[in-house]
Simulated assay, not measured.
Amino acid sequence: MTTIAKMPLGNNGPLVSKIGLGCMRMSPVWGNPGTDETESIATIQAALDSGINFLNTGDFYASGHNELLVGKAIKGRRDDAFISVKFGGIIYGGQFIGLDLRPIAIKNFINYSLIRLGIDTIDLYQPCRLDNSVPIEDVIGTIADLIKEGKVRHIGVSEITADQLRRANSVHPITALEIGYSLADRQIESDLLPTAKELGIGVVAFANTAEGLLTGDMKAPLPANAYQNHFPRFQGENLKKNLEKVEVLKQMAKQKGYTPTQLAIAWVNAQGDHIMPLVSMNRRARLTENVQAMGIEFTPDELNTLNTHFSPGAILGGTYLQR
């Protein structure tokens, strides 16, 4: 298996694996049925055994179910894992209904997370997004207070703008930015990514396959119950034209002896030493393939082909990433 490289999470952050494990899909969220608990725990432990130490979860993933899973998986091996937790999302009836970023709520959320995870300190704690309902200074300032209390080690942010990132970093040094990034979603390259690099903030990039578009397995039309149907990218002529675009990725993958998913992950990995692909896995069977992607190299011509073919705006229709 490919040796997992390490990267500093930001200029002054800790060393973490260059690939992270997204644990969300192990739980029943967003229409996903989740995975057998035994398999989920085994997958997390296999990832830790392979050298992947960055584990990403959220306190609102299936109402704490995901944190409980992670807690069971890391029991007895806390030092092997770097735990990243998102907070603030309010889910009711399986639907996202808003945010609660009040300082009093944050202080409540973290205590529940610590209990579910079975740990004393969360390594990276971050609001899942910001909506201006509470001043950024109050949100980040509250997490900074939790650092002083020993409940948090580092502050992260997720799905925010470049201006919000600057404001957050002015309150307390931000260690990591979690954001969707893929060949199909490159809008952050114009402003947000350069800002993170300028400020010395690590980038945790999720949705590397653009909600399945870049896997090479998607066909039009999607099944009626597919959650992607909610987004214009996956509807009607948009989906047909977008899948035609993906043929180039499929052909390159075949020529190189890999899968389109592996190339999609490898492209994100190639965008910088400060960028970590955050890959969702819920079965051990996917681990070898995804880790192998981290060893894929592109020639300058191959990168030029991908960057040109998937230039910003080339994929039609938006997703929730274009809020």
Rank of each mutant, 00 (worst) to 15 (best):
S190H: 10
M294D: 00
S182R: 03
G272Q: 05
L214K: 01
G93W: 11
F87Y: 15
I147G: 01
E137Q: 14
R167D: 00
G94T: 02
H274Q: 11
L101F: 11
A285Y: 03
G200N: 09
T288E: 14
G156I: 03
Q95I: 02
A73W: 09
S50K: 12
T288M: 03
G13K: 08
V85E: 12
G58I: 05
L55C: 02
V171G: 00
S182K: 02
M218C: 02
N111G: 09
R129W: 13
L243K: 09
P223D: 11
L117Q: 10
N108F: 03
V279S: 03
N108S: 14
G13S: 05
F96D: 07
A5N: 13
V134W: 08
V157I: 15
L199H: 11
D36V: 00
N242W: 11
L214Q: 02
L316M: 07
G141D: 13
A226P: 02
M7T: 15
I74D: 11
V279D: 00
G180C: 07
S133D: 09
G98L: 04
Q126D: 04
L146K: 14
M7G: 01
F310K: 05
L213G: 03
M294K: 00
F60L: 04
Q292G: 01
I155T: 00
R283T: 15
D123Y: 08
V70T: 03
I160N: 06
